[in-house]
């Protein structure tokens, strides 16, 4: 089976010298959820925006391979990528109001997507919109079509965003922290929805999150990012059963878990802060925070294959 999305050696730099993404490679297979997880500033959003060709002006992007199905995204003209965007590859963001226009009704914004990409009539577009609002669990979709974004709660807006992203039957959905701004109760509802839609529609889902709980419940594959690199990638079960990179393990130890971590006892924690990574940075960016740091960590860091689908970048070659 060929991946829906394939990225090899993606690098993104900004004019101020920040190396935001450094040699990221990942693949998303049809019908699969691939989670990218890491703390703020590690390059998750920049990776997603690279795929969608939505990087801010001035950003420099290079990749050996960046392919969506048969489309070579590294060579495609901007206007051609723009045509794919919102059509066969769609994206939803943390804050729905960044993509919803407060001045237009939900119905007209959703119908517009279909008009733009499929040149269908407004009436047909509204039918499709109502159908999808129903599908994302919104009762009385007909009434919602006539409402404005500010009339909806945060959870409903995020459902509308998901419905809108599905208007053209995308094959790839990129969701960048889609539930981070929501209450936990609503987060659970939205994630359940995403998962069931993904299974029904056979979507390839690239799900970006900082929350290992979300990863555990959603992912088939996981890429753990730190300072612009994928430091560990694995099948989700393997990753949680035997996390290999010291950063991944550190992250898992930091999370309080009801019934598991003992109340009142200290949590595991990772000392220090993420370093600033500029162009030409050499060595492991985690070494100053790592309990296993050794002199070799200042040099080139090897890529280790622990099993056919479990890799780390670390001087410690095993678990």
């Amino acid at each position: 089976m060929r991946p829906v999305l394939e990225i090899t050696n993606l690098n993104v730099g900004f004019p101020d010298g920040t190396a935001a993404v450094r040699g990221v490679s990942l693949q998303v297979m049809p019908g699969e959820t691939h989670c990218v997880v890491g703390e703020s500033g590690c390059g998750k959003s920049v990776t997603a925006l690279s795929v969608m060709n939505l990087l801010p002006r001035g950003a420099r992007r290079s990749a050996d391979v960046m392919r969506f199905h048969d489309h070579d995204l590294t060579r495609m003209a901007d206007r051609h990528i723009a045509r794919l965007r919102g059509d066969k590859m769609a994206m939803i963001f943390q804050e729905p109001m960044t993509s919803l226009n407060p001045a237009y009704t939900i119905g007209s914004q959703m119908a517009e997507v279909l008009e733009r990409h499929r040149h269908v009539s407004r009436a047909k577009g509204l039918d499709r919109a109502a159908e999808l609002l129903g599908k994302v669990g919104i009762t009385a979709p007909g009434m919602r079509l006539g409402q404005y974004p500010h009339q909806l709660s945060g959870g409903l807006r995020q459902r509308v965003m998901i419905a809108m992203a599905l208007m053209c039957d995308p094959e790839l959905l990129i969701a960048d922290e889609p539930t981070t701004a929501l209450d936990v109760t609503v987060q659970a509802q939205i994630l359940r929805l995403l998962k069931s839609l993904q299974q029904q529609l056979g979507l390839a889902l690239l799900l970006i999150t900082h929350d290992l709980g979300v990863v555990a419940r959603m992912a088939q594959r996981v890429s753990v990012m730190y300072a612009g690199q994928v430091v560990e990638s694995a099948d989700a079960k393997a990753l949680f059963a035997a996390p290999a990179h010291p950063y991944t393990r550190g992250l898992l130890d930091c999370v309080p878990i009801p019934g598991k971590t003992a109340p009142g006892e200290p949590l595991g924690s990772i000392p220090g802060v993420v370093p600033r990574i500029g162009e030409g940075y050499v060595g492991c960016a985690f070494r100053d925070r790592c309990a296993y740091a050794a002199p070799a960590c200042k040099g080139e860091i090897p890529r280790n294959r622990l099993s056919p689908d479990h890799e780390t970048i670390c001087t410690r070659s095993g678990a």
Binding site: Q187, A188, G213, A216, R217, K237, F240
Partner: peptide, 8 residues
């Protein structure tokens, strides 16, 4: 609603 990091 608490999503603990338990896969599966």
């Amino acid at each position: 609603s608490v999503l603990t990091p338990e896969p599966g």
